[in-house]
Amino acid sequence: MSVFLLSLIDKSIGGAMIKLSQLPLRFLLLSYNHQEILAGLVEKILKTYIRFFQCVQIIPSEYNYSQNGIVKMFDLLNINSDNLDHIERKLINLIETPITNFAIPVNIHLYQSGQLFWYTGIGVLESTGHSAAFFLHRFSISTASIDYSPSSLHYLDNILNSDNLIRSVSPRKVAADYGKNYNHFQRDCKEYFGDTFHQMHNKMKMLAVLADIMFTDYSFKEVAYRNDFFNYNSMYILFCRKYKFPIDSIPRLLTEF
Rank of each mutant, 00 (worst) to 15 (best):
L41Y: 13
V42M: 08
I104C: 04
V42D: 10
L110M: 11
E43K: 09
T97Y: 10
S81I: 12
E43W: 00
V56P: 10
F53N: 02
N93V: 03
A39L: 15
D75P: 09
H86F: 12
I45Q: 03
V71K: 07
Y111N: 13
F102M: 13
I87C: 06
I50C: 00
S61A: 09
V42F: 08
V106N: 08
F52H: 06
I70M: 13
V56T: 02
V71Y: 02
L94H: 11
I108C: 02
I79V: 15
E96P: 05
G69C: 03
H109F: 13
I92H: 06
Q57Y: 09
S81E: 15
I92D: 03
L76Y: 01
E88W: 06
N107W: 01
H86T: 13
Q57C: 11
S81M: 15
S81K: 15
L76C: 01
N107H: 05
D82Y: 07
I37P: 02
M73Q: 14
Y65I: 07
L77R: 07
L76H: 02
D85E: 04
I104Y: 10
G69V: 12
L94M: 10
S81Q: 15
H109N: 15
F53A: 00
S81W: 14
F53C: 14
N68F: 01
V71Q: 06
D75C: 08
N107A: 10
N107K: 06
N93H: 14
S66A: 13
I37D: 06
Q67S: 11
V42K: 05
F102C: 07
L41R: 03
L91T: 04
D85G: 06
N78D: 15
L110V: 08
R89P: 02
K47W: 04
I99F: 10
I58Q: 04
I108M: 08
T48W: 04
H86G: 08
P98G: 06
I99D: 03
K44A: 04
I92N: 04
I104L: 13
V71A: 03
R51I: 01
L41I: 04
F74E: 07
S61Q: 12
I104Q: 05
N107F: 02
T97A: 09
Q54G: 00
I45L: 09
A103Y: 03
I104A: 10
P105R: 03
N93E: 13
K47L: 08
E62I: 00
C55I: 01
F53D: 06
F74L: 12
L94E: 12
D75G: 05
P98Y: 04
F52T: 01
Q67P: 02
F53P: 09
L94S: 10
L110R: 12
I79R: 05
I95L: 08
L76D: 07
S113D: 14
L76K: 05
L38V: 14
M73A: 06
A39Y: 06
R51S: 13
H109D: 11
K44N: 13
N64V: 08
I87V: 13
A103K: 04
K47A: 11
G69W: 04
F52C: 07
G69S: 13
Y111E: 14
L84S: 04
I92E: 09
L76V: 05
A39W: 03
I45V: 15
